[in-house]
Amino acid sequence: MSDSQGPMWEVFVQKKSGQPFVHCGNLHAFDKEMALQNARDLYTRRMEGVAIWVVKSEHIVASSPDDQGSFFEPANDKIFRHPTFYQVPDAIKHM
């Protein structure tokens, strides 16, 4: 949504190097550089992270909650994707 405050951006912060970037909120900014600086000022005032991603909200594609059932249903009955589905002989350790 764009208005007099510029478009909306989504902010992702990485807490420590090696960890995933986690969505932490959003903000308004007019361009990329401003979005990054605003994200730093708004979401990392207390050393909450070591790296930031910003992306325009309009570029996020999201699944719809109304389709939650049918969208994720294919994974429902595939217990063979989990290691506990398989029997390993007691004599075999460390597998």
Binding site: D3, G25, H28, D41, L42
Partner: peptide, 17 residues
């Protein structure tokens, strides 16, 4: 900063800043 977090939370309900 708190004002900004809250404005964007309200914006997610379909009202503009």
């Amino acid at each position: 900063g708190h004002g900004l977090y809250l404005y964007t939370a309200a914006e997610s309900l379909g009202i503009s800043r």
